[in-house]
Simulated assay, not measured.
Amino acid sequence: MAVLLSGPVVPKVVPVSQFESAIIANHATVAGRQDWRFPRQSRLLKTDEYSSVFNFRCGHSGRFVRVYAKPNQLMYARLGIVVGKKELRTAVARNLAKRTVREAFRTNQHNIQSLDIIVRIMKPFDKTNVLQVREELLRLLHKSKRCLGS
C-alpha cells in the first residue's frame, strides 16, 4: 500500500539559540532547498589534519567542551571530534556526545567558513544536558571565528 504525501516533507527544527535561529533562516534558502547533509569533505580524517589544528593553538573552552580552530584554504569548514574514554566511559555516552557535536556543526557549518575545527569533550554529560552543551558549542564555534585573524 502506497502512502501519498500532499507536499514536501521538511524536518522540524526548533531553534535553540540566537545563533541557530539565524542559521536556520539562512539555510532554508540555499539553492531553493534545504541541504542538511554532513558529507565526508566536511570532516577531518587524517592524523596530520588533527595535529596541525592542535599545533596552531587557537582554542576556546567552555564547561563541557573545548574548541580548537585553524584557518584552512578551503571554502568550507571541517570538523573533528575527540572523545576520550576517561571522560565518557560507555560507548552510548560517547556516541551521544559525537551526535550532539555533529548535529550542532551540521546545522551551523554554512555560517563558519574556512576553518578546521576540533571539538574535544572535557566533561561528561547526558541527555539532560544536551541543550546546554549545544548552546555552549554554538557560542564557542562563533568565538572560533577569531582564529581566522591569527
Score class of each variant (00 low, 15 high):
residue 27 H to V: 10
residue 95 N to T: 05
residue 98 K to W: 02
residue 126 D to N: 15
residue 122 M to R: 11
residue 102 R to C: 00
residue 117 I to Y: 03
residue 20 E to I: 15
residue 61 S to G: 09
residue 130 V to C: 04
residue 79 L to Y: 11
residue 92 V to C: 08
residue 87 E to T: 12
residue 10 V to R: 13
residue 84 G to K: 05
residue 79 L to K: 09
residue 92 V to P: 04
residue 46 K to M: 08
residue 98 K to G: 05
residue 137 L to C: 05
residue 121 I to H: 04
residue 69 A to H: 10
residue 110 H to F: 13
residue 85 K to E: 14
residue 23 I to G: 14
residue 124 P to H: 05
residue 84 G to M: 02
residue 108 N to D: 13
residue 86 K to E: 13
residue 138 L to F: 05
residue 81 I to C: 01
residue 9 V to N: 07
residue 9 V to P: 00
residue 17 S to P: 05
residue 131 L to D: 15
residue 73 Q to M: 10
residue 23 I to V: 12
residue 33 R to H: 13
residue 49 E to K: 03
residue 123 K to V: 11
residue 61 S to Q: 06
residue 13 V to Y: 10
residue 145 K to M: 03
residue 70 K to P: 04
residue 59 G to Q: 10
residue 48 D to P: 04
residue 106 R to S: 06
residue 97 A to G: 04
residue 94 R to F: 10
residue 51 S to W: 00
residue 16 V to T: 13
residue 137 L to Y: 04
residue 92 V to N: 06
residue 33 R to N: 11
residue 120 R to A: 10
residue 55 N to A: 07
residue 112 I to H: 13
residue 97 A to S: 06
residue 12 K to W: 15
residue 84 G to S: 15
residue 127 K to G: 12
residue 129 N to R: 11
residue 57 R to T: 03
residue 59 G to P: 00
residue 148 L to G: 04
residue 41 Q to P: 04
residue 107 T to V: 08
residue 35 D to H: 15
residue 59 G to L: 10
residue 123 K to P: 09
residue 81 I to H: 00
residue 23 I to A: 13
residue 54 F to Q: 06
residue 71 P to L: 11
residue 28 A to Y: 08
residue 23 I to M: 06
residue 112 I to M: 07
residue 58 C to L: 01
residue 55 N to Q: 08
residue 75 M to Y: 11
residue 105 F to A: 00
residue 91 A to V: 09
residue 17 S to Q: 07
residue 71 P to R: 11
residue 73 Q to F: 08
residue 15 P to A: 11
residue 96 L to Y: 01
residue 125 F to R: 00
residue 29 T to N: 09
residue 47 T to V: 10
